[in-house]
């Protein structure tokens, strides 16, 4: 009866995760690129380009976690213990990079330390997110509605590959963000980095696309049975086009916004591939969105607030991005 409410919730969580991956993706990406910057001035410029936004960006992660608890408590209760260690690692990484935004400015002699903390924290958080993703795709062992697997079940070569892939992907988002938001040496360097990262991302996407159907029959069946094949075939084709366009625009100094948009498009495509592979499971391969759903009264109660608040949130988020629009020049900041 209320089957579609669970679907709506799956959709909302999907949006929250996508928003998170794109928004926090580019500011984690700035951290990942920190070690490749040349001077303290450049690092100031890079960090300033995201400083007013990072907290709002990270809030999408809270919405993802909180929304999962509210709408699908059974899935939340299985997944968190299943990927316990990478979740904690992600949180610890986010602590270091989060406080670095402030501490780097107020700590005079320890600036170097917070540079390292910002970079290492960002890399750790991105890697851990990839591992969590990989752990989910692999599947989680469930008995009697609780996690029943081993504590290191998540730790496989496949999960590690996903971890590295996410690091590369976020770095690509970060680099194209810098192309858009900065000038001078930082922007030039970012263009070069972005090309290498684009290549890496495409390679990783390729490997994951081959690995998952080979290793997991349910995914192979989803993609390669007829008529699905015809419906889903555009996904890899459009991906290839987006990648080529991104490369072309990265070579064209006049294009400053388009590479970032292309990188976002690539993320969306990869993401939709994963959704195609795993839908309707929240905890592959056992728990579907319907089995994990909260009581209808809970889902409806929060849904009302969400449908009202999401547009408001998107509205003022856009407003703040608009306010801080324009480029960050060398030596310029908001502090």
């Amino acid at each position: 009866m209320e089957w579609y409410i669970a679907l709506i919730w799956a959709g909302i969580l999907g949006i929250a995760v996508a928003m998170y991956v794109i928004l926090d993706g580019f500011d984690l990406g700035i951290g990942i690129l920190f070690p490749f910057s040349k001077s303290e001035h450049e690092r100031d410029q890079m960090m300033n380009s995201v400083a007013p936004f990072w907290d709002g960006n990270e809030t999408w992660l809270v919405l993802g976690g909180g929304g999962l608890l509210a709408a699908f408590p059974a899935a939340y209760a299985i997944l968190m213990p299943a990927v316990y260690l990478p979740v904690i690692a992600m949180l610890l990484g986010l602590i270091f990079r989060g406080v670095a935004f402030e501490f780097r400015w107020v700590g005079r002699t320890s600036k170097q330390f917070w540079n390292v903390a910002f970079a290492a924290g960002s890399i750790l958080a991105a890697f851990a997110q990839g591992v969590i993703l990989g752990g989910l795709i692999q599947g989680v062992k469930v008995e009697n509605g609780a996690f029943a697997g081993g504590h290191f079940d998540f730790a496989t070569p496949f999960a590690a590959l996903c971890g590295v892939a996410v690091v590369a992907g976020y770095a690509l988002l970060g680099a194209t963000w810098l192309v858009m938001k900065t000038e001078g040496d930082v922007a030039r360097l970012a263009r070069t980095h972005a090309k290498w990262l684009l290549a890496a991302v495409i390679v990783f996407m390729g490997i994951v696309s081959l690995w998952t159907p080979l290793a997991f029959p349910r995914i192979a069946e989803r993609w390669f049975s007829l008529p699905n094949l015809f419906f889903f075939a555009p996904v890899p084709i459009v991906t290839a086009i987006a990648a080529l366009l991104c490369l072309k625009w990265l070579d064209d100094e006049r294009r400053e916004v388009l590479p970032f948009l292309c990188a976002i498009a690539l993320f969306f495509l990869g993401y939709s591939g994963l959704v195609i592979s795993n839908f309707p499971y929240l905890v592959p391969p056992t728990l579907t969105v319907w089995q994990a759903a909260a009581a209808p009264a809970s889902q409806i109660f929060l849904l009302l607030g969400t449908l009202f608040m999401l547009p408001v949130i998107l509205g003022y988020t856009a407003f703040v991005y608009w306010l801080f629009g324009g480029k960050i020049r060398e030596g310029e900041g908001y502090h």
């Binding site: 608890l69 949130i313 003022y316």
Partner: peptide, 30 residues
């Protein structure tokens, strides 16, 4: 208790966290 605690914390995120974290940018850098 997820059916009960979850939506309450969900409202906290939607109504409070986004508000404070977004306007924080203006407060600190504006």
């Amino acid at each position: 208790a997820g059916n009960i605690i979850g939506p309450l914390m969900g409202y906290e995120v939607l109504v409070a966290f986004f508000l404070e974290s977004t306007f924080l940018g203006i407060m600190l850098f504006g």
